[in-house]
Design a protein around this nucleic acid. Sequence first.
DNA 1: GCGCCAACCGACTCTAGTGTCGGTTCTATG
DNA 2: CATAGAACCGACACTAGAGTCGGTTGGCGC
Lengths: 209, 209
Amino acid sequence: MASQEPRKRMRGSARRARITEAALDVFAARGYHATAMEEIAAAAGVTRSVLYDHFPSKRVLLITVLQEQNARLVEHIGARITGTGSPGRRLRATLDAYFSFSEDWPAARRLLFDHTDENDPEIKIVRWGIRETRTRSVAVMLGRDLRNLGLDPDSDTAHAVVELLISGTDGLAQWWARNPSVPRGQLVEAAMLVLWTGLSQTPGRTSMS
Amino acid sequence: MASQEPRKRMRGSARRARITEAALDVFAARGYHATAMEEIAAAAGVTRSVLYDHFPSKRVLLITVLQEQNARLVEHIGARITGTGSPGRRLRATLDAYFSFSEDWPAARRLLFDHTDENDPEIKIVRWGIRETRTRSVAVMLGRDLRNLGLDPDSDTAHAVVELLISGTDGLAQWWARNPSVPRGQLVEAAMLVLWTGLSQTPGRTSMS
DNA sequence: GCGCCAACCGACTCTAGTGTCGGTTCTATG
DNA sequence: CATAGAACCGACACTAGAGTCGGTTGGCGC
């Protein structure tokens, strides 16, 4: 039970990877302020000062992780969305992709969406940029549908719609994390039901052209 | 410019009220961990140790504020929702009530919905309770509409729908705080458009029976 | 007017946590 | 084999902040 890991010395890049991995977990679990570098270090199998050999500060470490995980999210979604297909199919595929992401990388989802407790201006800028591009992507995806509803995709109303859609979807993912027994497909159906079909419809009238 | 406030001594209850008011602002702005009691004290026009004459700890202070503001939210919404009216009208009224709340008490909205960085078990329980009752209320309100969609209001799918609706709405309120120039009515329309009408509809087919 | 209660304060302790520094050991390379 | 550079560590300085305590003073009841 003793030395299951002989505590070998690692190459810099490998250690860095381990550290960001550990940092992701701890930041996601505790939030920025409540996270102690000590805890990250322990989770990475290393002493606290080693963190400072690889990252200049806690702030920069968080920013690094943030960008890493956002890249992962973008890639994950992008990999399973084809630009083609009917609007309904595209939305469904995107929802499914997002839920699949939050299933595979729950900590990443938490880190990217849940916490807002950092008060650092530099971190704020990074978060702002991430959100901005995310919103834009979704707006582009929905462009045709919004126009179909008589909305200029650049209008405030359209932005509001996009925002509602994104945060609603993530809220659902959050709920899923607390109720993991529900299968993913059912989540997608629920989301489609309200976002696509609308609550006003009666069962027979769902349209998906 | 000197003594605009003669620094009078206040009655206990009045001071308590000032403190929770100040605490609301600071907690909402900075989050739990980043908030220093010093800052709350300053905002309340008093020294830090006075806070401890009125509240045993930072944790209890937050919990107090949380419950106070949740009561305010419930009251605010309840006051402008009549149980009657068509389903669409009820949903619209609720959305309007919530946006009006987040317009009047932006700090309360932030405190109740935005932050999750507290890691304290006691606080978690309080937050959990608040969310639970909130979800239940909305589920009750939507009961008829959910059934109309062929959903058992106690099913997972129904819960998911409610969750999506709540967090989507709050996400919209959050967006509104960053884009305050948009009039409230437009927000309501946007929310109704996606939640009630559904994105699949073409302009002519919006139903509101 | 007088005394008592409670509002208020300043100064203190103690802890947790960030960032620094100098030294040590592993390992890749010539 | 030698050496340089990099990974790693322990110990330190320093700060911020929570909670405590004893004392002081304003104001309300008698």
